[in-house]
Amino acid sequence: MKLKSLAVSLCLTSLMLSGCASKYVAPEQYSGFLKDYSVLKEDKSPSGAPVMRWIKPGIDVSQFTSVYVEPSQLFPQPQPTEKIPQSTLDGITKYYDQALQTQFSKALPLASAPGPGVLIVRPAITAVSASTKGLQPYEVIPIALIAAGVSTATGIRDQDTSIATEAAFLNGNDGTVVAQVVRKGAGTELDNSSQVMTANDAKAVLDGWAQDMLKSFEQLKHK
């Protein structure tokens, strides 16, 4: 009975916490990857997702004739775990690069290096985490590569996965920042606490981020 009561208490606490949790990345969770966070404001992405972002006022994106996607970084560099191994981290950054290149190539030719007329996309994965479903997820920045522990007696075994990104967009002419975005998303739910997270569990989130970035660019282009 005591175990059952504990499980109920944990669930209720979790519901209250998750109801109050912001969908925006909080300032204390910023990784330090971007140079200036003070300009960020709460906004919605083209798909309606909550983001923290900034776009340089009056920016004319028609000046960009090609786009260069820098290899995405894990920032700060994390230590892999059994739950989230190095192969998963490498797979996430590799797929993120592919997703960004696929989307931006629909609007601009891909450049092989920065230069005049080039829009530079500088992305980073700043959090990857897995936590027991029904408990408050761990989303500690720098990268949280930990799984929340809970007794199987509670009956809560599914695992939530989450991931966060920060990205800067630079003018290839002089390297000035023309836009920034910070956001997070939920990955595929894992079946249990022993299941290892793979890059496939984050692909839908990464695709969505890349699609929103392209749509934001296109919206600016047609203003």
Rank of each mutant, 00 (worst) to 15 (best):
M52W: 02
T126H: 02
A107K: 01
D97K: 03
S129P: 15
P50H: 08
V118D: 07
S62L: 10
I120H: 03
T93K: 10
R122L: 04
Q77L: 07
V121E: 07
L110A: 14
P71M: 10
T132H: 01
L119D: 14
S62W: 11
Q86G: 10
Q136Y: 15
P109W: 08
Y96H: 05
R53E: 00
S105T: 06
Y138G: 15
S72K: 00
T65V: 13
K83V: 15
P116H: 05
I120D: 09
E42M: 09
A113N: 14
K106M: 12
G134C: 01
E82Q: 15
R53P: 00
L110D: 11
I120P: 02
I59P: 01
T132D: 02
V67I: 14
S87K: 08
F104A: 11
L100V: 00
T88W: 00
A99W: 05
S47E: 15
P78W: 00
L135M: 09
P76E: 12
F64W: 04
R122E: 02
D36Y: 13
Y95H: 07
K94D: 06
F75H: 01
G32D: 12
P57I: 02
Y30S: 11
S62M: 11
Q73C: 05
Y37S: 07
M52F: 03
Q86E: 13
A49Y: 10
G32S: 13
S129T: 15
D36C: 14
G58F: 04
S45L: 14
Q29I: 11
S112D: 09
V128T: 02
L100E: 01
T88G: 03
L110P: 13
S72Q: 04
S31N: 02
Q101M: 14
